[in-house]
Design a protein around this nucleic acid. Structure first.
Lengths: 171, 171
DNA sequence: CGGAAGAATATGAAATTGCATATTTCTCCC
DNA sequence: GGGAGAAATATGCAATTTCATATTCTTCCG
């Protein structure tokens, strides 16, 4: 089943021999990486960095999110998001507006410019996704997405293995 | 099917409304992130940084890889890998040895210490993976892995969208 | 052989990232 | 009303990461 390739040096460099080739977390990271590479090139070709694209996409979905929400959705740590938003504001892609109800909150809004670019890229992303999905078996992509969502649901709240429970002695 | 949650502000913050919640690349990145989080905590608890763990795991699979091979397998850019290996060498986890056949090449070997720690963590990784897989439907994890491998196979060589073919006029 | 071209790795400087903490605003309870 | 404490965001600095390029070695060909 496993294709073992011997190199001149006698070292196996098969695609799936050994541990990592069957390790779920590796397969996830690796698929994510390689699948994104081509599209990320398109993003950069339009003068955006990848993190900026991620923010745009999230804002296209729902504009005016608060920094914390946006950070969670876009998978960035809060202080990092703040800095990305800084840059995007300078580029004129987004605008900060403080929430009237709660002035601690800062809501991030797309500018017309940001929305245009965002929508353009979302279309490109859809096309790119389609080229991948079309190459898979019928229904395989849907199953994949479903499984990925389940992973997400299972893991999101999971205690960081070995974490002490509240009230548990730490000494 | 989609659970739409309205917040005080009237903004949807559902888990899957809109574009990103159904976007393959997002689901991949997001599942990868959240699934790894708990295990990464275990890694750090043993005094390792995550990149170092990734290298250890790759070397456990096949010791003595050259820097370039290792970089590709571990999903790090070459110059970055060099620096991670520097640190690991200082910590006494790996040792560089230059290849006799081709003295440009540097092969990275585990020290006994590195192997011990690596094997320990591979076991922990297996246990962690098991806890995830067990929570999924029977067979779902296997399908997921297969789909991830297919993604990888489909995308690995893919021309970075808009790239010029060799021999194509660039002007 | 000699030297040009290419490969493999390392290095330096600039940019990004993460972590701890400061700052501002809100909530709650007395 | 007036703190104490929590929440939301920003900031500063150290560490990591990237990008371009230097260095070392090998291969190929005249």
């Amino acid at each position: 089943m496993n294709t073992i390739v011997k190199k001149e040096s006698g070292i196996e460099v098969s695609g799936n021999a050994g541990f990592v080739g069957e390790y779920l977390l590796y397969l996830l990271a690796s698929a994510s990486d390689v699948a994104s590479a081509a599209f990320h090139a398109q993003v950069r070709a339009r003068g955006l960095r990848v993190p900026e694209w991620r923010i745009l996409a999230c804002l296209i979905d729902t504009d005016g999110q608060m920094v914390t929400e946006l950070a969670q959705l876009s998978l960035f740590e809060q202080s990092r998001l703040t800095k990305i938003v800084d840059q995007m504001a300078i580029k004129g892609l987004v605008k900060r507006r403080s929430d009237d109800r709660d002035r601690r909150r800062v809501r991030v809004h797309l500018t017309p410019e940001g929305r245009r670019l965002g929508e353009e890229l979302v279309e490109a992303a859809r096309r790119h996704e389609r080229t991948i999905v079309e190459q898979m078996r019928p229904g395989e992509a849907a199953l994949l997405k479903q499984a990925l969502k389940r992973i997400h649901a299972l893991c999101e709240g999971a205690a960081p293995a070995g974490a002490t429970e509240p009230g548990e002695p730490t000494s």
